[in-house]
Design a protein around this nucleic acid. Structure first.
Length: 565
RNA sequence: GCGCCCGUGGCUCAGCUGGAUAGAGUACCUGACUACGAAUCAGGGGGUCGGGAGUUCGAAUCUCUCCGGGCGUACCA
């Protein structure tokens, strides 16, 4: 809609220039927006204010010069503009005809589950890597937030025209895995009645003991007879595999499906890490000092250089990370997005460094979404959680308790820049307090009305098929609340684009809340099924359009749109 | 010390690529079910947008500075 108004304004401005009413035909990048107050029209532009310096005249004078060239429905039947006004410091406000909005409904029906999508991404290849939790323990709340954010962001980017791949990076190499093996091994010995000293840096959770039991049952004494290092590595492999499978299951029941699970170990197996190090060495970006290999990250904006291979010959986590990120670009992604816990923010600079050193532009091609902490609450009180003791509420527990939809919606309700209070009691509540029900209720309520309409033979199918003749009924939508609803429906696409551009999925959440609020309000004020068949049909079409947009929006967030609740 | 995030009604947060009178929810009051689903709606009170300075026709939004909170600052991952 804004685009159409923009064309009209620019055309009018050009005419005004031709007639000598404006000095310049340069029109700066002007903006169109919905004013906050209804008295300020449907669409508003800052054209006159922005042009003030170029035209060397007061904004209101500029507006006065241009407005006469804008046709309204008073003089021209085909115009979608009812009235134009100059307001405040020089805004030009447009009041549109009801008919201008009606066409949105047809678009929604025709585009259906594609309504709101766009070509913004131009099919650019983007990878979103998220969760990527170490396979050393079950996923907890924090991972849940990362999973919801990563998954929704990827969905939104895909909807906005990017070619998106979702990936999970498995840290199946390095020290944390051997620590896992050691932890299980020690518990195993303990169960065999041996005196052990269980170090603080080993994994403390009960699940470690469970693995020890399982392994003992499965492999029996053969393991005990082996050399300790070999036994530990067997314990590590067994446990990591099982934990990873658990993670996969948990994510699946959380509604997250990855396109690729990428193994860190594979980077070593394919010598990718070594080749990457050699490559940078030959360019003197990696150099030797004090017996270790260092990456010259400081040159690329980091505070200091970072070790890639320790003096004991062992690679650091950073080494495989360099190889991994470079390989992402080698795999053909134009853009790479990582979702991390905010406590890892210190890593951004060094990853930027290796991407830039590789000849890519990290500022254009690499983004890190930093997800802030989650405070888990129960009835307003903090849930005791201690990672050290290995006792935490797992993602699995949360999904089991409140359900996938409530959990995801809650995680996406706020910007990931802010910490999040997640209240388990609230997430289960069936009320206004709980946003997921508020929005899903719209969908269920509409389904229920459509069912009733079908029962009364007003429509012969709840899934109303679009036909041009239906425009006649749409045309009967004249109530304020109806036009307001359509306006909100018309904004879905630009909200998706904004969400994709800023990588902020909560924008979709906020949009859905606004739409839901407008629908509930409309519902309470006007009966859909009335004595008047024409009006009833018009309204049934309208609410079907609302239903489609709610479904599309919830779909982006990975939340279901139920017919009944 | 340095770096990142946050600071908006009592509480939890939107709004932040500058726009007009700063919005929701919650809580607190008051109303609406012989009803297409009350898991809903309508109305009311409640704000120095952490403080200060700057840029601008215009600042919650951009810049600087200070204050407060969280996180990070390894040859850990």
């Amino acid at each position: 809609m804004k685009e159409e108004i923009k064309k009209i304004v620019l055309a009018a401005a050009a005419k005004a220039f031709k007639q000598g009413l404006l000095i310049s035909e340069k029109f700066p990048s002007i903006e169109f927006e919905e004013p906050k107050h209804e008295t300020q029209g449907d669409v508003s532009t800052n054209f006159a204010m922005i042009s003030a310096s170029v035209q060397k005249r007061a904004p209101r004078k500029i507006a006065e010069a241009v407005i006469p060239f804008i046709q309204t429905s008073n003089t021209t039947n085909s115009s979608i503009i009812k009235k134009v006004e100059i307001a405040g410091p020089g805004f030009i406000n447009f009041f549109l005809c009801d008919e201008a909005w009606h066409s949105i409904i047809e678009t929604i029906f025709i585009q259906d589950n594609k309504y709101g999508s766009s070509n913004l991404g131009n099919n650019k290849k983007v990878q979103v890597e998220f969760v990527s939790a170490n396979p050393t323990g079950p996923l907890h709340v924090g991972h849940g937030r990362g999973a919801a954010v990563g998954d929704a962001t990827a969905n939104i980017l895909a909807f906005a025209g990017f070619d998106v791949q979702k990936e999970y990076y498995i840290n199946d190499s390095g020290r944390q895995i051997s620590t896992l093996g050691k932890s299980v091994w020690l518990r195993l010995l303990e169960q065999e009645g041996k005196e052990i000293d269980f170090p603080g840096d080993c994994y403390q959770g009960e699940y470690i003991k469970d693995f020890a039991k399982e392994i003992l049952l499965e492999k029996g004494n053969s393991l005990l007879e082996k050399e300790e290092t070999e036994a530990i590595s067997e314990c590590a492999k067994y446990s990591a595999d099982h934990i990873l499978n658990g993670i996969k299951d948990d994510l699946k029941s959380f509604g997250v499906e990855f396109d690729q699970w990428f193994s860190e170990q594979s980077l070593y197996d394919s010598s990718s890490v070594q080749k990457t190090i050699d490559g940078f060495k030959s360019k003197d970006i990696i150099y030797e000092k004090d017996g270790a290999l260092w990456f010259n990250t400081e040159k690329y904006g980091d505070e200091k250089d970072r070790v890639v291979v320790r003096s004991n010959g062992v690679t650091t986590y950073f080494a495989s990370d360099i190889a991994y990120h470079i390989e992402k670009f080698d795999r053909g992604f134009d853009r790479v997005i990582d979702v991390w816990g905010a406590d890892h923010h210190g890593y951004i600079q060094r990853i930027n460094a290796c991407i830039d050193a590789y000849g890519r532009d990290s500022s254009e091609q690499f983004d890190v979404i930093l997800v802030q902490l989650v405070n888990l609450l129960r009835g307003g009180k903090p849930c005791a959680m201690s990672t050290r003791a290995g006792e935490f509420v797992t993602l699995k527990d949360i999904v089991a308790e409140v359900g996938k939809d409530a959990a995801r919606f809650m995680f996406l309700s706020r910007s990931y820049d802010s910490k999040l209070d997640f209240d388990l009691e609230l997430a289960k509540e069936k009320s206004n307090n709980n946003p997921v029900f508020y929005v899903q209720y719209v969908h269920a309520r509409i389904s229920s009305i459509l069912q009733k309409a079908e029962d009364q033979n007003l429509i012969n199918n709840q899934n109303i098929e679009w036909h041009e003749d239906l425009n006649e009924f749409v045309n009967s939508l004249r109530k304020n609340e109806e036009i307001k609803l359509i306006k909100i429906l018309s904004l879905f696409g630009e909200n998706v684009e904004k969400s994709a551009q800023t990588l902020h999925p909560h924008i979709i959440f906020t949009y859905l809340m606004t739409l839901a609020q407008a629908f509930h309000s409309y519902y309470n004020k006007h009966k859909v099924i009335t004595e008047n068949k024409e009006i009833s049909l018009g309204r049934l079409i309208l609410i079907t359009a609302v239903k489609k947009v709610i479904r599309n929006g919830l779909g982006l967030l990975g939340v279901s749109a139920p017919e009944r609740m």
